[in-house]
Write a protein that binds this DNA or RNA. Structure first.
Length: 907
RNA sequence: GGGGAAUUAGCUCAGCUGGUAGAGCGCUGCGAUCGCACCGCAGAGGUCAGGGGUUCGAGUCCCCUAUUCUCCA
């Protein structure tokens, strides 16, 4: 990018020939600095965290949180990472300040019970001053108020000027992971853009002068529920250096946005809008910055397998995408541009994140799809707003603006903009009030669930060693009972009839995971050599709690005690069926990639005993023809009898070999690779057949959509195919019998029956109406003349029964009669719609204009008649319908109606 | 997790406070034209998402379910 003048007079400290630091170079320098100090260099974890209670990776240490909390083994004594992070809590500030981002990278070095304050401080200083070449006179450090130890190290060992060591309170320099748990003081390093202002009264909050770029957390205490601090047995170091901030400092630009980590995206967006960043006004600059920031965020989110949706992280992605589109419009970009922005983002970040390149087609497709969707939303909103404006209101109310926003996703700013074009204002205060109300509602509903609740099993599991799993090779083996849980509490023994959770030291039972269900089987007393007391425990399923396998079972006979040695035996037939489905799932993924789209990847999977379910990212439905080809391909592979090769290898090697990994899944360094040579290679911990021939047959049962952009294929394989076919055959047989047809003829028979039915229904309706009309015409002659005065033209009153006519036809008849009889006609028809059922009375009245002029209204009139038949009704003054339940009263009611008409018309 | 909205002809949508389901585009046929586009006339096409309820009567009101959209967390 072009060199930009620094905002501050720091330029005088630049020495000629000084190294130019690109963002990539800064990252590399950090990681290799710590790698040279025995840190294991780990790749950035996914933005989608393993912890299901956390929406996104919001900090560099998040992937290590379970390690710090003692819930997971440490990956190494020391580690260093560059972690991608997403934060959206103060999204409104993005682009308005120099440093707020939704997407950023956190460089970090970590010590898990290894080195502590002295090394952390020394290395941080060395890295900052010697590697990055920052002038010590331009650095300021902060320490926690009570942390004399850290202050001493800075002063004595490093030699920092005491005036440039600032003590801070808990709010700024004491780190906690939650109300309880590990915590400790921090120490931060700040860069001073204006060292010439001296050392007196330094205010680190002044971010026009200072920027914090390195935070060192010294985790040394555990805080209990009462707030007491006790020293930790293993003290940890957790640090974070904001990559964008360091780039801002080293590249001497006024904000993070002008570093080479983001600026190329801003330039891309500006070019698309036909403007330049330098000449843009403040509002457009802000929009450009938002696009630059969000462009990185959305690209990385999609690459990590997030797809836009209306909940959870999918919703965060959607919101970011829509903000990009909106700001694009604000700076004058017309038409679709997200794919081009995404393309630039991939190219920009590709050097550090090669997987972006692999996912390029999927990322661009998602961007395009989502942009299109948002444009449709905007169009709909504009239409609705136009309707509101058409009523020429004095202003747009808060409720109206909120409805547009809340229900139809139409942004407030756009409502304001369009209203302004019509010379109207929007009640923003009312809008905010409605929004606040909605927030309160959501909050009130949220407290009802308690995320901190942990079951007894989780507590037990946390204290145990991991279970050794032997089930890849063995289906039966002796094992020792190391824990028992019934009714949520740890027990010494369980008796016949008890439902119990059992942990064994080792087990052949597969624990539910990776989509595959847990094994079923039996634990029996004793071993082959020493038969027990007839103990039998049936196992219905096995869950995994971290690496501890919990067998859920029921004691059928005997007594199960802690410490017992039992024989654990997996149900072979169930296991075989699960294995067939699991291998078939791998074949399915491979086949879908070949037939439908190479970009297809898994979004979820279920491997059960009687079926398999595979969810995958795919923007459209898979066609029937494609499904047929997928089936053929898979059955071909099955009959080719491929022998599976399962081996363990280093993650990097597996990836290099082309093994399919799940996005967002975190893998250990050594992974298990399931290889169907030439067909499919996946990282997988599940159990599989030894040879594809064992699967026997594969049959797709259903294809459907689960969510926008996600499709689901359900299938059966192996032994599970037979029951499926039998069930289907049963249906066909029953149909064949009922239709007295050969199975192959059923479809034709049904459709011809349908046509016949439709035709005869139509004919019947037409005939009925025709009949009703002709009977009605015959009735016309029976109309009675009612005269009010001798010299006046008489009214024509017709009251009659007309049976077997549906409401609609009856009304047609009455209207036609009324028309024939002229504008002085009053027609009332009534009858049973079904002559055999006195419970369904239909009544119709049709009055000519002159009758209405006499104050008689068909609606009210027919209502009164219907009430005599136990019903009610109404309609318009000229024509009305009614009904009742009491057919026996119909004649009297009609007679009454005739009387009423006479009286009403001759007065 | 909690709100709001939508679902009507192949497509885009009307359908006001319950009273025989409509429009535009598309489709088919006929007319007009040397032929096409345009145009004129006629026609086909709907268990109003599914289920339950209220009512004499429900596309319309109420409840449940499904799908989609959307906001909040």
């Amino acid at each position: 990018m072009a060199a930009r003048p620094p905002r501050t007079p720091a330029a005088d400290s630049v020495t000629p020939g000084e190294r130019h630091w690109t963002g990539d170079a800064i990252r590399e320098a950090f990681l290799s600095f710590y790698a040279a100090r025995d840190h294991v260099r780990l790749p950035s974890a996914s933005l989608v965290p393993e912890d299901p209670t956390v929406l996104l990776t919001i900090a560099g240490m998040l992937p290590f949180k379970p390690v710090f909390l003692g819930q997971a083994p440490r990956p190494a004594a020391r580690a260093t990472t560059s972690q991608k992070c997403i934060r959206t809590n103060d999204i409104e500030n993005v682009g308005r300040t120099a440093r707020h981002h939704t997407y950023f990278e956190m460089l970090g070095n970590f010590s898990f019970g290894d080195y502590f304050k002295a090394e952390a401080i020394r290395w941080a200083w060395e890295l900052s001053t010697e590697v990055f070449g920052l002038d010590p006179r331009q650095l300021v450090v902060s320490v926690f108020r009570d942390d004399d130890e850290a202050a001493n190290i800075w002063r004595e060992e490093i030699g920092v000027n005491p005036k440039r060591i600032i003590r801070m309170d808990e709010a700024d320099n004491f780190w906690v992971s939650g109300p309880t748990g590990p915590c400790g003081p921090c120490s931060e390093i700040y860069f001073d853009f204006q060292p010439e202002r001296g050392d007196e009264g330094l205010n680190l909050e002044d971010d026009s002068r200072f920027i914090e770029f390195y935070n060192l957390v010294f985790m040394e205490f555990n805080r209990d529920a009462e707030g007491n601090l006790t020293p930790l047995a293993h003290r940890n170091i957790d640090t974070g250096m904001g990559l964008e901030r360091m780039a801002q400092i080293l590249q001497r630009v006024p904000s993070n946005y002008e570093t080479d980590l983001i600026f190329p995206l801003i330039e891309t967006a500006a070019a698309l809008a036909g403007i330049t960043y330098d000449s843009a006004d403040a509002r457009r600059r802000t929009s450009l910055k938002v696009i630059g920031d969000h462009g990185r965020a959305v690209t990385q989110l999609i690459a990590d397998g997030v797809s836009a949706s209306n909940l959870g992280r999918g919703y965060i992605l959607r919101r970011l995408l829509r903000r990009v589109v909106r700001h694009g419009r604000l700076i004058g970009i017309e038409g679709s541009f997200l794919p081009r922005l995404g393309d630039a983002a991939i190219t920009l970040m590709r050097p550090a994140y090669p997987q972006l390149e692999e996912r390029r087609p999927a990322i661009l497709a998602e961007l395009e799809r989502e942009e299109e969707r948002f444009l449709a939303t905007l169009e709909r909103g504009e239409r609705l707003l136009a309707e509101v404006l058409a009523s020429q209101p004095r202003q747009i109310t808060g409720a109206q603006a909120f409805e547009l926003y809340d229900t139809y996703g139409f942004p407030l700013e756009l409502t304001e903009e369009i209203a302004e074009e019509h010379g109207l204002s929007v009640d923003v205060a009312g809008f905010e009030a409605a929004m606040e109300e909605q927030r309160q509602r959501a909050k009130a509903a949220a407290v009802s669930i308690d995320l901190t609740l942990q079951g007894a099993l989780a507590v037990v599991a946390a204290e145990l060693e991991g279970t050794v799993f032997t089930g890849y090779d063995a289906l039966e083996q002796p094992a020792c009972v190391v824990a028992l849980v019934t009714d949520g509490a740890s027990r010494e023994q369980a008796e016949a009839g008890d439902s119990v959770g059992i942990v064994l030291d080792s087990t052949p039972f597969y624990g539910e995971g990776g989509g595959q269900v847990g094994d079923r089987g039996v634990l029996s007393g004793g071993s082959a050599e020493t038969p027990g007391d007839g103990l039998i425990v049936s196992i219905e399923g096995v869950n995994r709690n971290r690496s501890v396998f919990v067998h859920n079972g029921r004691v059928e006979r005997g007594v199960l005690r802690l410490g017992d040695v039992v024989t654990a035996r997996v149900d072979r037939s169930c296991r075989r069926r699960a294995q067939a489905h699991h291998t078939a799932t791998h074949l399915l993924q491979a086949a879908l990639k070949l037939v439908v789209d190479p970009a297809i990847h898994q979004a979820g999977s279920l491997v059960d005993f009687d079926r398999l379910r595979f969810d995958f990212h795919c923007p459209r439905a898979v066609t029937v023809e494609e499904l047929r080809r997928v089936e053929e391909l898979i059955n071909g592979w099955i009959s080719d009898a491929h022998a599976l090769e399962v081996r363990e290898m280093a993650l990097e090697r597996a990836k290099a070999a082309g093994a399919v990994a799940m996005f967002g899944e975190k893998y250990t360094e050594v992974v298990r690779v399931v290889d169907v040579p030439g067909v499919s290679m996946e990282l997988c911990g599940g159990t599989h057949v030894a040879n594809t021939a064992e699967i026997g047959l594969f049959k797709i049962v259903a294809e459907s959509g689960v969510a926008a952009g996600i499709r689901r294929v359900e299938a059966v394989a192996g032994a599970a195919v037979l029951p499926y076919l039998n069930e289907r055959e049963g249906v066909v047989k029953a149909l064949a019998e009922r239709f007295k047809a050969q199975p192959a003829e059923i479809v034709e028979r049904v459709s011809s029956l349908q046509e016949e039915l439709k035709a005869s229904q139509k004919a019947l309706a037409a005939a009925r109406e025709e009949l009703a009309l002709s009977r009605a015409r015959a009735l016309a002659a029976t109309a009675e003349a009612v005269t009010a005065a001798p010299d006046e033209e008489p009214f024509r009153v017709l009251v009659a029964r007309l049976e077997g006519v549906e409401g609609g036809a009856l009304q047609t008849a009455a209207q036609e009669l009324a028309e024939r009889l002229g504008e002085r006609a009053a027609v009332v028809l009534g009858g049973l719609s079904d002559p055999g059922d006195p419970g369904k009375v239909h009544l119709v009245a049709a009055f000519g204009p002159a009758v209405i002029g006499r104050g008689l209204k068909a609606g009210a009139f027919i209502g009164a008649v219907a009430r005599m038949c136990g019903g009610g009704g109404g309609g318009r003054p000229n024509v009305a319908q009614a009904g009742g339940r009491n057919g026996a009263a119909l004649n009297d009611a009609l007679e009454q109606a005739r009387e009423d008409l006479r009286r009403g018309l001759n007065s």
